[in-house]
């Protein structure tokens, strides 16, 4: 059986809130290492990959591999009943028809219990290979969100050009064009406000802003975001969580 308690319900709330507009139904794959999720978005241009490691739960018990097929809108309806600071315990049998969620207020004077029905989802969990990227940019997640939001007002797509001097986000639309260039810098008072660029070769790729704006819904999970780019391969947008990550992969656009 599965029994997994999160110290704060808001971690799962934020994950589901961030991906529910991309993915409707998906399997939460549970094993002794933790809970993982991998799903393509409905239009098959983006891939979501999430891991909550067992060390992020206390206690964590999962005797055998269990796939929890969940409709994310249904899960969100239930999770909205949890306060951010509530303890959240997930429970499921080995061959479950439902997932049990228990919310406990931090003062332990309120217990809420919900069951949501599970569904059979034919979805294979495939290992995504570790990739060496030509450019890895770490920046404040709020900064990335702002850039995507601002440029999406002008255009459907953004080019991301990284070289040793900085990273330039540029777009061009009917009303004009715009760009934001970030130069690497270190904020000594708050490391999370730094911009870091690791580069083995310059890259320049174009992506759909609609998807990037959607990925930025995960910004509240982490103060920083990591963008990994190589020419002609999908962009990786990664938000680190305490004991895991939420990753989005987006295929680049190509010229006609």
């Amino acid at each position: 059986m599965l029994e997994a308690r999160l110290e704060q319900a808001q971690i799962l709330k934020k994950v589901v809130e961030a991906i529910k507009d991309l993915v409707q139904d998906c399997n939460f794959d549970c094993n002794d290492a933790g809970i993982q999720l991998q799903a393509m978005d409905n239009s098959h241009v983006a891939l979501v990959s999430m891991k909550l490691g067992s060390e992020g739960f206390s206690p964590y018990r999962c005797d055998r591999n269990i796939a929890l097929g969940i409709n994310l809108n249904s899960l969100m309806k239930v999770l909205r009943a949890a306060a951010n600071e509530d303890l959240l315990t997930l429970k499921a049998e080995d061959q479950p028809d439902s997932l049990n969620l228990l919310f406990e207020s931090s003062s332990q004077d309120r217990l809420s219990e919900y069951d949501i029905k599970l569904m059979d989802i034919d979805q294979e969990h495939l290992g995504i290979p570790d990739t060496e990227y030509a450019a890895t940019i770490t920046l404040p997640s709020a900064e990335f969100q702002r850039i995507c939001r601002d440029l999406s007002a002008l255009s459907e797509s953004v080019s991301i050009e990284a070289n040793k001097d900085g990273v330039k986000f540029a777009c061009s639309g009917d009303i004009g064009n715009g760009s934001v260039t970030l130069r690497p810098h270190t904020n000594v008072e708050d490391e999370d406000k730094s911009t870091k660029i690791e580069l083995t070769e310059p890259v320049n790729l174009t992506f759909s802003l609609k998807y990037l704006v959607n990925f930025c819904k995960a910004s509240s999970l982490s103060a920083t975001v990591r963008l990994c780019l190589s020419n002609e391969v999908p962009l990786l947008v990664e938000y680190q969580m305490g004991a895991g990550y939420l990753r989005f992969y987006l295929a680049p656009k190509i010229g006609d």
Partner: peptide, 14 residues
């Protein structure tokens, strides 16, 4: 005119 590529071929997904 931009073309949006599908993600599946990059990861050998169906």
């Amino acid at each position: 005119e931009w073309l949006q590529q599908y993600i599946a071929p990059f990861f050998n997904l169906n």
